[in-house]
């Protein structure tokens, strides 16, 4: 005897939600997570995953090479060869500028272009929440992508050194200098990227504007500063938006601006750099808060 099907089709209807519910904080965190997923290409096509992870691989290569050389030469009698220092590695992270130019517009512009903002602001979110969530997501990823290679470098150097404990003891300062320098750099690039992306609803325009800003200020600064070797540095170096956080990096690692840098020899150069840094960040924050002052008066 054949079995008779006993299945039934039910209209599940609608069940009200009776569990706990978060407020602004939960909404902000949800937007932060969604922005992180978007930036990393998670739950998107494979093409969107390529750029972030290729860039992560690229910025990690110097650390791997450095550790590899250390491993190969671990039994040699001559001093260990270091092709890159922790301080210099912070500079490598400025390659993530390309990542910012790709990702910040992708996370920001479609919300305006595809008119998602009215939906977002119909939730328990304010303009400040939106800015914090979006900028926070970009800065978090930038920080992770800048910090992870440093961790690889540190752990690798520690493992190939003669004594791991001695290595850690000799390099304790790195444990606070690297996160601080990387943090300053990523907050800076992230905020500028998000602020520029907020000014347009076209990703290509935002990306080009960001790269253009860095190129133009870099070239202008280079022309104004001139020959650093013969003439020394100049305050005009502060115009270079790309390099500005690297002067602060030098202050953190060296205690002063690198004398061979375009700002070298300028009295109180470190303080000037910090001042311009703060002004740029405040400017970016002002642009964002004005742009997302969603509630009209």
């Amino acid at each position: 005897m054949s079995a008779i099907g006993t299945g039934a089709v039910y209209d599940r209807g609608y069940r009200p939600y009776e569990g706990g519910r978060g407020g602004r904080g939960a909404a902000r965190f949800a937007l932060y997570k969604a922005s992180m997923r978007r930036a990393l290409g998670i739950r998107r096509t494979w093409r969107q995953k390529v750029a972030p992870f290729v860039l992560l691989a690229v910025v990690t290569i110097p650390a791997i090479v450095n550790v590899g050389i250390g491993y190969v030469t671990r039994n040699e009698v001559f001093d260990r060869v270091e092709i890159i220092t922790y301080r210099e590695y912070v500079g490598v992270s400025s390659a993530l500028l390309l990542f910012v130019a790709l990702v910040a517009p992708d996370v920001i512009c479609p919300d305006r272009r595809q008119r998602v903002l009215p939906l977002l602001f119909a939730r328990p979110l304010t303009g400040l929440d939106y800015v914090v969530a979006k900028a926070g997501a970009i800065v978090t990823i930038l920080f992770a992508f800048s910090f992870l290679p440093q961790v690889v470098l540190f752990v690798g150097n520690m493992l190939v050194s003669d004594s791991s404990l001695d290595y850690v003891a000799d390099n304790l300062d790195v444990l606070w200098k690297v996160p601080l320098a990387v943090g300053l750099l990523t907050v800076y690039y992230g905020m500028i990227g998000v602020a520029i992306a907020a000014l347009t609803d076209r990703r290509i325009v935002a990306g080009a504007a960001l790269i253009g800003l860095f190129l133009v200020t870099s070239i202008t600064s280079g022309i104004l500063v001139g020959d650093v070797d013969n003439n020394g540095g100049s305050p005009a170096a502060l115009i270079n938006v790309l390099a500005l956080p690297l002067y602060l990096r030098d202050v953190i690692f060296l205690g002063h601006v690198d004398p061979e840098s375009p700002l070298g020899g300028v009295d109180n150069g470190g303080w000037y750099a910090l001042g311009v840094y703060v002004v740029v960040l405040l400017g970016a924050a002002a642009v964002l808060l004005r742009r997302y002052r969603w509630v009209e008066r």
Partner: peptide, 27 residues
């Protein structure tokens, strides 16, 4: 809203669950 307002490159499940979280629901 009346107008188109959905991210075109995301799935309906992703969008609706994200907006659920934005409304304060646990993930």
């Amino acid at each position: 809203p009346e107008h188109d307002c959905l991210p075109l490159d995301q799935t309906a499940a992703d969008i609706v669950s994200t907006f659920g979280e934005l409304s304060g629901l646990p993930a």
